[in-house]
């Protein structure tokens, strides 16, 4: 084990000890370190930003209340990712949440493609480019949502978080071969969606 890895492990152990003692500063530090990654994972699985926020909130609350049961057999990152994936997969939508989601979709529909789209007629984007871009995103999103959620979990952990196959297998408690085949199938389907056009 290299010195750097050793130092990292020691720092993580200290952080966990502080968390177990109920140190709020340590908890804030943990949230700052992982919140973005967890939001990305949750969004990668649910494709819903509001749900992702709720999921990540729940994950941190769960971590806060169950840190005493964390036995450090895995790294805290693996533990956090595992909770996030499970929380995202088991996320049960209440009727309220469904209605909210539908309402937001309609709002997005009526107000165009959102604030991130460049203005029409600008140098960078012509109307036809925008249309293609929009269609590509729509196709991609449709295909992504059609993927089994467990496959999406593997895909987001690999593509967004850069986890190795072994790490993914540990987070999801599946075999390395399963990781490999799920990734292959996800890529196959998503590439089809992306390349239907001229690209």
């Amino acid at each position: 084990m290299s010195k750097k890895v050793k130092a990292k492990k020691h720092a993580e152990h200290l952080l966990i000890e502080r968390l177990k003692q109920g140190d709020e500063d340590a908890f804030v530090s943990l949230m700052r370190q992982y919140r973005a990654a967890l939001i990305n994972i949750a969004y990668g699985i649910t494709s819903d930003s509001e749900e992702s926020q709720d999921i990540v909130q729940e994950v941190f609350l769960k971590v806060y209340s169950s840190i005493h049961s964390f036995n450090e057999k895995s790294s805290i990152r693996t533990w956090l990712y595992r909770i996030t994936v499970n929380q995202s997969l088991n996320w049960i939508r209440t009727w309220k949440r469904r209605l909210k989601w539908q309402h937001q979709s309609l709002t997005q529909e009526t107000s165009g493609d959102g604030i991130n789209q460049p203005e029409l007629g600008s140098e960078k984007y012509s109307p036809s480019d925008l249309f293609e871009e929009k269609e590509l995103t729509w196709r991609f999103e449709k295909e992504l949502k059609a993927l089994p959620k467990k496959t999406r979990a593997v895909f987001v952990l690999r593509e967004n978080q850069g986890l190795s196959y072994d790490e993914i297998a540990r987070v999801l408690n599946i075999k390395r071969g399963t990781v490999c085949s799920r990734l292959y199938h996800a890529r196959l389907k998503l590439k089809k969606a992306l390349l239907k056009g001229d690209r």
Partner: peptide
């Protein structure tokens, strides 16, 4: 494309607000 898709859609999320909510 996938990473762009995620960053585009999660950019509206305010991490500080999330942190405050949790606390």
């Amino acid at each position: 494309h996938f990473n762009n898709y995620i960053s585009l859609n999660t950019s509206a999320i305010n991490p500080s607000a999330l942190e405050t909510k949790v606390l």
